[in-house]
């Protein structure tokens, strides 16, 4: 019963978010265009890094190298904004009204992260499409695309949960955006998203090993490559899943703090 209610409530709230997105065509368009711009911009800007001695990419182009990087980066940047919806809801009376209703707190978290994950799926497919049209090829095939979708969605869940939790704790748009920026850029650049960490300083390589964004990028890139080292993919997906569950749970707990001090 409780689980059924949780799923139902999550569904209602996901629909609410998707509907709101579709009603803001300009915003929806930016959501789709932005990753494409990143892909083409970074693809051009750093095109020659593949010639640095030690850069991985056995045969592939830089475009092929950064496609998973841009996908994960897009998931990261979009999800960092997830909490802003909560703050809008708090600034209006929507949050109070929902919290005074029997809606499951877990569903309020699941609703927003499911919406983020859906957005990520669409963005990922668009990036793949543009990359393919620009000549990139991914020997990993459907399995590779599947792993990339999963990894990107898990990053979405991790970051959206974090953003939601921060929103519930600080309750202020400026503070949330400040904290998100502070976290998101290092996560992005201390990873192999746009640069092979083997040609980075050793400390970057060490830090990247603990960076969930790097887990997602490495897992995706491996799965998309010709001879996938599944031993590198599966543990990273496992850790991402674990982190996603823990952060979603923590975000749900943050409602308690929000209510205690309301």
């Amino acid at each position: 019963m409780t689980t059924v209610t949780l799923v139902r409530h999550s569904g209602y709230l996901t629909v609410r978010s998707v509907r709101a997105l579709l009603r803001q065509p300009a915003f929806a368009a930016i959501t789709l265009v932005q990753p494409v711009i990143w892909l083409l911009l970074f693809g051009q800007l750093f095109r020659s890094v593949v010639h640095i001695p030690g850069f991985s990419s056995a045969s592939g182009s830089y475009l092929e190298f950064i496609t998973p990087g841009v996908i994960v980066m897009t998931a990261l940047f979009s999800s960092a904004w997830a909490g802003t919806v909560y703050i809008e809801d708090m600034d209006r009376g929507v949050m109070d009204r929902l919290l005074a209703s029997p809606v499951r707190r877990g569903a309020m978290i699941v609703g927003t992260i499911a919406y983020q994950a859906l957005t990520t799926v669409v963005q990922t497919l668009v990036v793949f499409g543009i990359a393919y049209a620009s000549g990139a090829r991914f020997p990993g095939g459907l399995a590779g695309i599947g792993v990339t979708l999963l990894a990107a969605c898990l990053v979405s869940v991790v970051i959206a949960s974090f953003s939601n939790a921060i929103a519930l704790l600080v309750r202020q748009q400026e503070a949330l955006i400040g904290i998100s920026q502070f976290i998101v850029l290092p996560l992005q650049f201390l990873s192999s998203a746009v640069m092979d960490t083997r040609v980075s300083p050793a400390w970057v390589r060490h830090v990247a090993r603990y960076n969930p964004v790097d887990w997602a990028v490495v897992a995706s890139r491996q799965a998309l490559s010709a001879d996938t080292a599944w031993g590198a993919v599966l543990p990273r997906l496992g850790f991402l899943t674990l982190l996603a569950v823990v952060l979603a749970w923590l975000a749900t707990r943050a409602f308690r703090t929000y209510q205690r001090s309301a």
């Binding site: 609410r16 509907r19 709101a20 009603r23 803001q24 600034d91 209006r92 009376g93 929507v94 109070d96 009204r97 005074a100 209703s101």
Partner: peptide, 13 residues
């Protein structure tokens, strides 16, 4: 039922 001080409808619905 609660009608709080602030508008509590979802503006985008």
């Amino acid at each position: 039922g609660l009608v709080s001080q602030k508008a509590s409808s979802d503006p985008m619905a």
